[in-house]
Simulated assay, not measured.
Amino acid sequence: MTTVLTYGTFDLFHIGHLNLINRLSELGDRLVIAVSTDEFNAGKGKTSVVSYEDRARIIGSIKGVDLVIPETSWEQKATDIVEHGVDVFAIGEDWAGRFDELKSLCEVVYLPRTDGISSTEIKQMLRVLDPSHITEMQDALSVMSRLLEHYRDLT
């Protein structure tokens, strides 16, 4: 039996996440996914929209995922590999080279990302819905309106 392990935040679950999980499940017989806790993300300067509990539950309900564990630190990977009998550690290619030290414990694979989608990009798009940005847009429209009125008065 081949056990595969990966790590991620999996916030705002999207098709890129599903593609990754499908690729991961093709690498072995058993898939373990470590989901970053809210506390760990806070330590990295990240905030998740969806709580750890809900993200872990979403991931755990996906076909092909056998076990979900919490990711609480950068250092836990080697311990998790040994504890869960991991044969393949796989993660997105945006991390290429960052986990090569784990090659002494198991095979390390960097998988391609899905083009055109990421949780970070979705969060950036949603920023326009933030109340402070709506106020900024209203202020800008007000200035433009006054400029147009002034221009009309000149003609």
Rank of each mutant, 00 (worst) to 15 (best):
L129G: 07
G92D: 14
G64F: 02
K77F: 08
L154P: 04
D100V: 08
L147T: 13
D66A: 04
D153Q: 13
L141F: 11
Y110Q: 09
S142F: 11
G116E: 10
P131W: 03
D100W: 14
S119Y: 06
V88G: 10
E136D: 14
T120A: 04
Y151A: 14
G97M: 08
C106A: 05
S73T: 13
L141M: 09
M144Y: 13
H150Q: 15
L126I: 06
K63P: 03
G92E: 14
R57H: 00
R113H: 11
E75P: 00
E121I: 04
V109T: 00
C106Y: 12
T120Y: 04
M125A: 11
F99E: 15
V143L: 10
V143E: 15
T114M: 09
S142T: 14
R152I: 08
W74V: 04
L141E: 12
A140M: 07
T135P: 06
I122R: 04
Q124E: 14
L126V: 04
R113L: 15
G97R: 11
I81L: 10
R113K: 11
F99H: 13
D87T: 11
P131V: 01
E71P: 06
G116D: 08
V109D: 05
K123E: 01
L102E: 14
L111N: 07
D87G: 12
H133N: 12
S73G: 01
I62P: 02
S118M: 02
I62F: 01
I59L: 01
E71F: 03
A90T: 12
L148Y: 08
T135F: 00
G85Y: 08
T72D: 07
V88L: 09
T114P: 09
I58C: 01
W74Q: 04
R57N: 04
W74N: 08
S73H: 12
D153F: 05
E136N: 10
A78N: 07
S61N: 06
D80M: 12
I62G: 03
Q138K: 10
S132A: 05
M137G: 07
I59S: 00
S142Y: 13
A140P: 06
L102K: 06
K103E: 15
D100F: 12
A56S: 00
H150R: 15
R127T: 07
D130A: 03
L141N: 12
E83N: 08
Y52V: 01
E107G: 04
S61H: 00
E101A: 12
D153I: 05
S51N: 02
I81Y: 00
D94M: 09
R55A: 01
D100Q: 09
V109I: 05
V65T: 03
L67V: 02
R146G: 05
V88P: 10
S51K: 03
R152E: 15
E149F: 05
I62L: 05
M137A: 08
D153T: 11
T79Q: 14
S73Q: 09
L102D: 12
V68K: 03
L105C: 00
T114A: 13
F89W: 13
V82E: 15
Y110N: 07
I117G: 02
A96I: 15
S51Q: 00
Q124V: 06
S132P: 02
R152G: 09
Q76W: 09
I58S: 02
G60S: 00
